[in-house]
Amino acid sequence: MLKFLLTRVSLVIPTFIGVTLLSFALIRLVPGDPIELLAGERGIDPARHAALRAELGLDRPLLEQYWIYIQKVLHGDLGVSIVTKTPVLQEFLTLFPATVELSLFAILLALLVGLPIGILAAVKRGSWFDYSTMGLSLVGYSMPIFWWALLLILFFSVQLGWTPVSGRISVLYWVEPVTGFMLIDSLLSDEAGAFRSALSHLILPSIALGTIPLAVIARMTRSSMLEVLSEDYIRTARAKGLAPWRVIVVHALRNALIPVITVVGLQVGVLFAGAILTETIFAWPGVGKWLIESVQRRDYPVLQGGVLLVASVVMAVNLIVDLLYGLVNPRIRR
């Protein structure tokens, strides 16, 4: 097990170095002079230009610049936003919980709806339920989620007026950020109704973001269930006279879930790509919206730092899923 752990971790290191190279190169690949980019439209006088050049170390050889960059990164210094003048890491840490909260809800929704649908479709293979849910899940899988989010707003917020259009909580409430998770913070605050407001803000974005994972999970559960249900040990269990539900839930589901867990783990990257769009549409103050705004404002330090942080999170989650998978399924630990 230790050897398995070490090999998996060591495989991540070159990828991480590569990502730092990418993020290092980012600001230098943008056409034009980086300092003039940082100075913005007002321009900059030559003396200050030279001073900044030396300060940022841009006058040194590239390799040395990279070395300095790596040292800074490992000390948690990811530069300062041009627009807000706040350190990039600090901004990321304030916004990250919002993205995590949204993503967790989305994946929870996907699991709660997707798993039962997949199981039922496999058990009732060939029925109208199977056909219609699998047809729908193909539609969900093909959904342009930025459009889907707009339709949800159009129907539930504009037509029915059930849910708010954007943000994390109504402006009527002011909630002290303790954990950064609005649902928990609103419960901790004394304001009555704050929790309800936070929850109602969370529903539509979670549906929008959870749709593709839901479709993937439903399809994956169905096919993996079908495979397991045709195994000999299931026939044995049935022949023993066990109750049908017991065979399905206890015997089959356990093994059928293994590939589903991997798929859920792999959805992290997909989820983040979706979060960029969902957060932009629902004005959800998370990392995805922050990155899009950094591109629009040409705030390159934020984009540079944000890319590195997001890639690190995705890599870390994939590594954890990989390790957990090895724990659950001893066959792949060589």
């Binding site: 070159p14 990828t15 590569g18 690949l29 983040f272 790509a273 960029i276 591109v295 890599m315």
Partner: peptide, 19 residues
Amino acid sequence: MDIMLALPSLLMAIVIVAI
């Protein structure tokens, strides 16, 4: 290729367009 896959697809595309 692994490095290119480490970034979520849309983010990677956005970075390239930003450049």
